[in-house]
Amino acid sequence: MISLFMTFSDPTGERRIHADDLAAAAAMIGSIPGMAEGLLFTPLEQSVDHPYKADGAGPAFTLQLRFPNLFACEAAMDRSGVLAGLAVASGLPSLAGLEVTHQAMVTRAFPVDDATHANGTVTPCSYLVHYPGPADDMNAWNLHYLEHHPSIMQTFPDVRQIEIYTRIDWVDRLPSQRVEYMQRNRLMFDSPQALARALGSDIIERMRADFVQFPPFAGGNKHFPMLTRVVRPIA
């Protein structure tokens, strides 16, 4: 599975996508040929406690679009397609003028004890993490991270989804800026409060203990809790 990330960022951290534009973006995304699923991420309406609040509120809007293979993803990134319009915020005035980046990555999914959302879940919350890189030795980095960190993530209480994304080469004709972060992660919970409870547990100490064992890398990392909306392809 391939994931395409597209991120709309405001350097001031103040702008947000409006509700009408979010609905319009969801309709556009549902019409993308070959897409298996779309995830739309928006900032929390009220902040919650988590260990990396200093990283800020996060982007104004982020997309994760899943494709069954790289060829389907690349086909969707043609200069005349829906994604090209999204990249320039066509018809989405609340996103106009923002910094827009994109990256295609391999999706690595890991099992959780219970992937079913609790009754009453309305808007799940994802914890988006990225490592810009680079690492001194990417193979050593990936080996350590994939062999150690997911098994700790799996012990977070009520985690519903764990995915890790790693780099690939891809081609596109999008007008937005390409980025090549060495890794992204995403954990999903039932709500921002559930995420805060999990990250306030003692599991975070195990995560930190493993962090100091990571092979050498530059660029630090960023962590953003984001409300999550799932979009299915339009039949």
Rank of each mutant, 00 (worst) to 15 (best):
P192V: 01
P157G: 05
Q154N: 01
M182D: 10
W141C: 06
Q154P: 04
Q154Y: 04
E147A: 10
D169I: 02
E147S: 13
A140H: 07
L143I: 09
W141R: 12
L143T: 14
P192W: 02
T166E: 08
H148G: 05
L143G: 12
H148A: 08
R197E: 00
L174K: 12
V171A: 14
R167Q: 14
L143E: 14
R197A: 00
Q193V: 03
D172R: 15
P134L: 09
F156A: 04
V179I: 12
A140N: 07
Q183H: 10
A196T: 01
W170I: 09
I164C: 11
Q161Y: 15
Y145K: 05
M182V: 06
R160H: 00
Q154S: 08
L187F: 00
V179Q: 09
I164P: 10
D190G: 02
V159H: 01
N142E: 14
T166Q: 13
F189Y: 04
W141P: 06
N142S: 11
R160V: 02
I152A: 10
E163W: 01
E147Y: 05
H148N: 13
V179H: 02
V159Q: 00
D137M: 08
W141V: 12
W170P: 07
H144Y: 12
A140G: 14
S191F: 02
L143Q: 15
M153Y: 10
F156E: 00
R184Q: 09
